[in-house]
Design a protein around this nucleic acid. Sequence first.
DNA 1: CTTCTAACA
DNA 2: TGTTAGTA
Length: 137
Amino acid sequence: MKIGELSRQTGASLRSLRYYEQQKLLAPMRTDNGYREYSPFAVEQVETIRFYLNLGFTTEQIAGFLQCVLQNKEAFCRDVLPVYETKIAELDDQIRLLARIKSNLEDRVRAIMEERGQSSPVRMKGDKRNDSDRDDG
DNA sequence: CTTCTAACA
DNA sequence: TGTTAGTA
């Protein structure tokens, strides 16, 4: 099948399909006119690729175990587990970073609340005092 | 009309 | 990734 049909059957865009090939995740044949020719198996291959992409793996990581996973069961491909562990570790780092940012934001909110607690006049939504110099509305 | 490559808003 | 240009 040609790229258009594969795209329709998998939901992957033409751009993505060509990109997967560039990343060595797919290796379609070429017809005389230079058109890509995919085997019927390309459908499940693309589905597998997208499955791992959705887990957050890079095309490079996927390229490492794709062949094995397409032929055997995931549990029998030794190169897979390390990738999962790496991804989980990265996620932990991101979570720590986000937690730190969140903590800082919460600290600032507290600081603002305290400052208000001592000087009462604070304008809230709906307050009609001195609203003549706004650029919206 | 479909696909190809390369490049850019 | 989308989109687009100019082809084959």
